[in-house]
Write a protein that binds this DNA or RNA. Structure first.
Lengths: 236, 236
DNA sequence: CAGTGGTCTAGACCACTTA
DNA sequence: AAGTGGTCTAGACCACTGA
């Protein structure tokens, strides 16, 4: 066999330290220039190693603050009836939610279509970001049909929306159409999650229907390395 | 605002050509060195641009053969009762399947656990790769409980396994536990899909149960930019 | 064989964060 | 102001591909 590439060998050494627990979850790695010195590689090679570990979900970067060891993935059922809050508690993870905006707006065309309303018709749009164990990992954009959610804006929208929908508005028997795909983050989404533009994410789109009629559309962008989704289904 | 970075501006120009149809799906991009010349950037910048488009799923690379425009995503229901073959036909996509190996082996421990059998107990392991529109996008590893699938190896395993399970073995009323996560490809998996080690993939694990007992475990590794998953669910 | 991407060096300046 | 990652140059050699 040939000699391992310098960046792969550095990546392996860092990985070793991480799985050993020498570098625990959430801790900061040495700076890129420090790695160059310690391991006698060029900065390009050091960065290649970091990129490799990043794409494996082992580490992540915060703006220009440095590289950090990623915490374990959060497990999540996108067809959930329970709220994310409840799932976080059962996994002993700290969840924080921040309301970014809430207003009555005209949604994008695809959203209008999914809600089965005219493109000129407005909807209530709620945008939030959520952190698991202090790391922002989820950007959430919910579009609600106004007719189905009167006075929505007067409620506390930093709390569980799932509970609000269920308890204040009494929607219990819901159907969900869920779509999951890989999607690069837009500049503004990336900024809210403190990652860079174009960063890969798992995009989850959830159309909520009651009696066959759509009442809401939820879009979630999860940092791809932060989540694992689990679904139960039935074969024919 | 500041001047756009050279690599972002190059990426935007290439993206333009792709969405225009000037560079249709499947076509080859100019070589990295050609791009350096045409756009007067260093090779590093050219590569950064290509990497950005790659992470957006717009282009992909084949070994050392060059960069190519990616075809549209394949849409797929992981809780499907229909076979992938059937889904491909309804989407007018060409699907090819290649059997890589089929044998009786002792599976990894996690698999034994999921199948609820002793770690020493063997299982029938079938490995295949599948292409959509001539591009290898899926590596599939199926573990079958021997007791549930007698004489499995004597069948044609390049054909639809879904149909085989349903028609030859008569398992109709199945339950599925599905898990979806992001996972880097191992060296051997990457090689089969003609991409490089560590390439991000969507990992799908599907536990098949009949009357509450697991009879098979299927693992699928999809190139992350090639697929979109859709699921239907029920709220509480 | 020539062409391609894969890896690498040793520098440089910029933009942003934190203090 | 000091430290960090982000971007960039102009080269180089290697490993693998295809004809």
């Amino acid at each position: 066999m040939n000699q391992a590439a310098a960046y792969l060998s550095l990546a392996a050494k860092l990985q070793q330290r991480i799985v050993n627990g020498e570098l625990p979850a959430g801790s900061k790695l040495p700076s890129e220039r420090a790695l160059c010195g310690q391991f006698e590689v060029s900065r390009v090679s050091a960065r290649d190693a970091l990129h490799a570990l990043e794409s494996q979900g082992l580490i992540y970067r915060l703006n220009r603050m440095g590289w950090f060891v990623a915490p374990p993935v959060f497990i999540y059922d996108p067809t959930r009836s329970s709220s994310i809050q409840e799932e976080a508690i059962s996994q002993h993870r700290a969840l924080t939610t921040e309301l970014l905006s809430a207003a009555q707006e005209t949604p994008p065309i695809q959203v209008s279509k999914a809600l089965k309303q005219a493109p000129t018709q407005s909807a209530v749009v709620v945008t939030r970001r959520r952190a698991v164990d202090q790391r922002w990992v989820l950007l959430e954009i919910c579009y609600f049909r106004e007719s189905a959610f009167p006075d929505l804006l007067s409620h506390d929208l930093a709390k569980s929306l799932t509970a609000l929908v269920r308890e204040q508005y009494g929607y219990r028997a819901r159907e969900l159409d869920v779509s999951i795909s890989s999607s690069p983050l837009s500049p503004s989404h990336a900024q809210h999650l403190q990652v860079r533009e174009g960063c890969p994410s798992l995009k989850l789109e959830r159309q909520v229907k009651v009696a066959g009629e759509p009442i809401a559309l939820e879009r979630e962008f999860w940092l791809h390395d932060a989540i694992e989704m689990r679904v139960k289904g039935q074969g024919s």
